[in-house]
Structure formats: C-alpha cells, structure tokens
Nucleic acid binder design. Structure first.
Length: 608
RNA sequence: GCCCCGGUAGCUCAGUUGGAAGAGCGCCGCUCUGGUAAGGCGGAGGUCCCGGGUUCAAUCCCCGGCCGGGGCUCCA
C-alpha cells in the first residue's frame, strides 16, 4: 500500500465518470467538501489484502498523524496513481473499507471518496512540516519505523521494546518522556510561567544583538554568579583533582582538529571571517580545554583529572527554536572534562558523575528521567555497566540507539526534568568520548612507558547556567500551579534579607542590622523609601525576598526582631537567631560577592 | 526553516466597524508618619513595530519585512 497524507485546510471532490466497471455505487456520495481534514490518498497494491498487517499499520500511521496535526476528520481517497502494482478492484475495495473502518473505530470521523471514478478535486494544503507525508506499507513489516531506534531498560536489567511496554509499570514522568521523544505526541501549548519569572529577575533577550542572545540585569547577574560558583563546587566534589582554566571563545578553522570537531556540529556553527581567516565560536569548552591539555605532559599517575571552565558557548540555533533561558545562541556552559586512562576507568568515574547529577536535581526538589543515547554494540558489550547505571536511578530509562561510528562518544546520557507543562527538558548531561583525544593529539604515558590516548568524559553536572536557572524557575512555577507560594532557594535569592525601618527615625537601627548581616556574607538591603509599611512589605513579597525584617519602636525597645519569612509567616527572634537560621540554610552553597546597593530609595526601576 | 497568534506610554494591557489615543502600575510634585500585600490629590510621558499600497483620510484594511509567544521540523 502506498499512502499520501495531506493536512488540508480545505478539500473537496466530485465524482465525474466511471473509470472501471467495478466502480462503487455513488448514491449519496457523489461529492464532499471538508475543512481541516487529513486527506489520505491511498493506492492499494497486490497482496495488501492478504493479511491484516497492512491495514493495521496504515490505520495506526494515519491516526498518529491525525492526532499530531490536530485535524478534525480523515478523508480516505482512493487514488490509483501512486503505484504500478495495483491490487485487483475487489481486493482494493475491501482493503479501503477496512482501513476506513479501522480508523473510524478509534473514534475519528472518517469520510470515504468512491472507488473507481474519475473525480475532480481541489486541495489546499496547510504547508507545515507534517502536512505532506508519504508512506509505503508492505505486508509483514511490523515494527513502526520511529520505534525501532528505542527501547526501555529497567533497573532489573530487562530491555523491552516500545511496542511491548505496559503502561502500568511506567512512572508518570517517564510516560511524558516517551510521548515527547518516541510517540511525538502533539501538545496543547500555553505560555509557561517561568517566562514571567525571568522578567521579574531580569533574564531577558538583548534586542540589539543577534537573535538568541540574552542580557542579565542586576538580580539575574547575582543569580548567575552564584550558579557559576556552585557549578565549580559540584565539579570539585567528585573526588577527582580538577583544574579550573580559562580561554578564548574563538578558534581558527584552518587547524585540522578545530575543523574536524567543528564539522560534528554542522550548520549550527557560528562562523565569521576576519583578516581573511575563517574563525568559529566554540559551542562548548571542549575546544579550549583540548587545545590546552594537548600541550600538557601527562603520566598515568595523574589520571583521572578534570579541567573545568564556565565557557561562553555559541550555537546558531534556528530562529523558531529559541527559548529564553533554555535554547540560546549564546549561553554559559560549566563544562567539565575528565581525562581517564581507558574506557573502564571512564565508566567508573561516570558512576560518580551520574550520582552527582541526580543528587543536584533532587536538591531542587526535582527528579530526572533519562535518555541513554548509545550504539547497539555498546549495549551488547557493556550491558552490566548500563544495568548498574539504571539501578542507581531506580526507575526505567529510555535507550536510544544511534548508528555505529557516527558520533565521537559511545554513550551520551541526557537527563530531563518534566517541566510545568509536561515537556521533557534536558538539564544535565554526560558523554564518554573515545575520539577527541586522538583528534587533538592528547596523550599520556602509561606504566610501560607507552603513549596512549585517554578517554574523555564530557559533563555539565547542573546543565548550562541558564538551564539550571530554568529548572529553578520552573520549580517555582510548579509550586505556584499547586497553590503554594513560589520562591527561590535562599542561596540564589538576589536579596536574602530586606530590612524595613518603620519610619525614618529607625533607619540607623536598620543600617546597623544590615551591617551585621553583611558581615556574615548575607545579601541584605534596606527599604528606606517614604512609603507605607504595607506597601513596602508588598514590594518585598513581589520580589520574592525570603526574609523581611521590620524595625521600629517595638524592636528598639525589646531588642528582638520581627521577621517575616516568605511562604511561612511572622516570627520574633534575636539577630543571632536570624543569622543562625540563615547560615544553616546556606550551608553547602556558595557566597558570591555580587550584591545590590543597599538603599532601595535610590534604585532605578528595571523589572516588573 | 514551516504553520497559527500577537506587537499601542518605561511595564502590563484596553481601544478605535478608517476621522486629533486610553487605564492601571512605574516616574515627577504635593500631602499623609503609616505596624506586615497597594493612604490621598495633581502632573509629565506616544513614530499605536518598520516599509510600501488602497483611501479625501490608515494605529485600524491589503502586501512585504522585523521582533515576540505557541505548535512543529530541528536539536542531544
């Protein structure tokens, strides 16, 4: 069977004259006219009627496309001209009827144009990518093409094909992942809340740059600084020596390794020509770190070690793909490369990375569902390794098989959160790279004085800085959706404590409290504006400030502070108690020097 | 890159069936000294995204472009 699927804004036909003696009767079905229809032009070929397979598969495909494009009905239109191996008319009529019935039994409205007539028709195609598709369906071919590249691995080591999955043994988030990545289910849409939160904290597009470049206002910059520092902290916590380095974002294509590595990225590469030199912007920290480490003299005793940089990275994403704080043309990648003796050592190290990546997302109160991209041969050879990774996750993972030899890595794990709107979003990732050491000429000397190429792990433990912020803001959005007060973790809050003097008389007292908090490395400001207390409290809440301290006559007399804690309530405590609480809440997280100027009364307004 | 929706004050948006442009917030001034989510009064502020077309007349209609949001294609 051959089919041609057109998603038509408008479709109409009218039977004119018989083409065959075996033509169907057209009583009441001489013509039809439809809006927003999926028109299925069908040619039935010899043998299609011999088993149910063909009809089943064709119907499943039509239904799949129907759901994805959001058409309101299906029109089955017999059309002999897609093949020269036509079934005889009786077989064709039977198969066409079965196809229509099969689609109809899924609850989808179906119309069928008559078989065996010359028909006038006109079709207005929407023109989106899915609006024109053609298929060839042969008897006996069962697995749907899109599914063959996927399987699911369970913690007990079982590997199950997509069609054999039982929904009841799959966690909800995993189903969301399957729907997006494998079934390609169409989504409802709606503007996500995190975009509003981005504006609130000053994460915005920069209109005067290229598309996909962001700017970061004062609050956003404090947050980004904190995330960058935290990413470094995570890299160091793996128990492997890690060297922080820094480099350039611009590389010259005339160097072979640069050109080869660039080729892997294809047309998403940012390029420019300067002084007749072809230059590229790096798409991750790989270029710089490999170019540097190739000049290092490395002994097996030094391995494994890591190199780390928060690298400004550039990818020429397509305009329609860009998404604030998520898919960007310029972003910051806290990229760690771990150089290992061999694949076995890399796999050992990857367990630590795997567990760290999970630990970090869970600290945000979230969880991942993962995709393991790998070749089938890697699966065959390292099934125990994979089983252990999945055991550590304690839930199923999606295996995605890629062609042998196409990529520089043998396994590439993508860790996805399921966002506020049910979409998988990749945040963390690691890859085991067996190709780039040789390409860049990175070697070490082993126990036997032989030069060898190390195996390199690439990882962004907490994802790009922007994506980590996305995860944080999306978590707040989920809270808000659940009716809770949305908030930031204390260590990421641009202002951690706001002190509000009840009236200007108490400004000195407010300042002295702010001084003491600042000494402890707390980000604090003072709302000294001539506004009502209620107004200033409200503004602090709008900015999600976690701790708000009001000082006035009462506090001056009692020596205690009245502290409003976001999402919790109002408490009396001493300054020491407040500091103790803050310090313990910040334990394990970085303090950065960036902070806002103290007085709220003298600040430009730049965010809602 | 494709399809749909949108672009009006610094921000969020209303509006004009084509005839001199509106609100709230913010800003400025005055007033209020206020105890936990907006005290009161007044004022300033506009290339209605850009370019072309239709029209006596375009912010509004038509065409093209730019930018944003959504859905895809992509992407790992």
């Amino acid at each position: 069977m051959k089919t041609l699927l057109i998603h038509a804004k408008h479709f109409e036909y009218e039977a004119r004259e018989k083409a065959l003696d075996a033509a169907e009767s057209i009583d009441g079905n001489r013509s039809g006219s439809f809006e927003n229809a999926l028109v299925v032009f069908v040619t039935v070929e010899k043998g299609d009627g011999s088993s149910q397979d063909v009809v089943e598969e064709a119907a499943a495909d039509v239904l799949d496309v129907f759901r994805r494009v959001g058409a309101s009905r299906v029109v089955v239109y017999p059309y002999a001209h897609l093949s020269d191996d036509l079934a005889d008319p009786e077989e064709a009529k039977r198969v066409l009827s079965q196809l229509a019935e099969r689609i109809s039994s899924a609850g989808v409205p179906v119309s069928r144009a008559p078989f065996g007539w010359y028909k006038r028709f006109s079709v207005e195609c929407y023109g989106h990518p899915l609006s024109e598709l053609s298929r060839t369906i042969k008897p006996g071919r069962r697995v749907r093409p899109g599914y063959a590249d996927f399987a699911v691995m369970f913690p007990d080591g079982r590997i199950v094909g997509i069609e054999e999955l039982r929904a009841e043994e799959l966690p909800e988030d995993f189903v969301a992942l399957l729907e997006a990545e494998v079934f390609k289910k169409k989504r409802e849409g709606g503007e996500p809340k995190y975009l509003e939160y981005c504006r609130k904290f000053g994460f915005e597009w920069e209109p005067m740059s290229d598309l996909g470049h962001m700017r970061y206002g004062p609050e956003a910059t404090i947050m980004l600084d904190a995330v960058a520092e935290y990413a470094w902290q995570c890299a160091r916590s793996l128990g492997i020596p890690v060297y922080k380095v820094r480099g350039t974002n611009t590389f010259n294509l005339s160097f072979k390794p640069v050109a080869q590595h660039a080729q892997l990225f294809g047309d998403r590469l940012y390029q420019m020509e300067v002084d007749e030199k072809k230059l590229i912007l790096r798409y991750a920290a790989c270029h710089q770190q490999f170019a540097m480490v190739k000049d290092w003299e490395i002994s097996y005793r030094d391995l494994p070690f890591g190199a780390f940089e928060v690298a400004d990275s550039y990818r020429l994403e397509q305009p329609g793909e860009l998404l604030l704080c998520f898919r960007l043309r310029k972003f910051y990648m806290p990229d760690l490369h771990v150089f290992c003796k061999d694949l076995a050592e890399a796999m050992e190290v990857s367990f630590r990375i795997h567990s760290k990546i999970y630990e970090e997302i869970r600290k945000l109160g979230r969880d991942y569902v993962s995709i393991y991209n790998l070749t089938r041969s890697f699966l065959e050879q390292h099934r125990d390794y994979l089983k252990r990774l999945v055991e550590m996750e304690g839930k199923p993972v999606l295996l995605h098989f890629v062609p042998e030899g196409k990529y520089y890595w043998v396994i590439n794990v993508e860790y996805n959160i399921i966002d506020e709107l049910g979409r998988p979003r990749e945040i963390g990732t690691f890859q085991i790279d067996v190709g780039n050491a040789e390409r860049f000429g990175i070697t070490y000397v082993d126990e036997n004085n032989t030069r060898r190429y190390p195996v390199i792990i690439h990882t962004a433990i907490i994802g790009s800085l922007e994506r980590y912020v996305f995860a944080v803001l999306d978590t707040a959005a989920k809270k808000a959706r659940a009716g809770e007060v949305p908030s930031l973790p204390l260590w990421l809050s641009p202002v951690q404590v706001r002190v509000i003097p009840h009236s200007s008389e108490y400004l000195k007292l407010a300042d002295s409290i702010a001084d003491k908090l600042e000494e402890q490395g707390i980000r604090v400001d003072v709302d000294d504006r001539e506004e009502s207390l209620a107004k200033r409290i409200r503004d602090a809440e709008v900015k999600w400030i976690p701790y708000v301290v009001v000082v006035g006559k009462r506090e001056a007399e009692s020596g205690k502070l009245t502290v409003r804690v976001r999402g919790q309530g109002q408490y009396e405590m001493s300054l020491e108690e407040l500091v103790g609480r803050l310090v313990s809440e910040l334990k394990g997280y970085p303090r950065v020097s960036a902070a806002l100027p103290r007085y709220v009364s003298a600040r430009p307004r730049y965010s809602p």
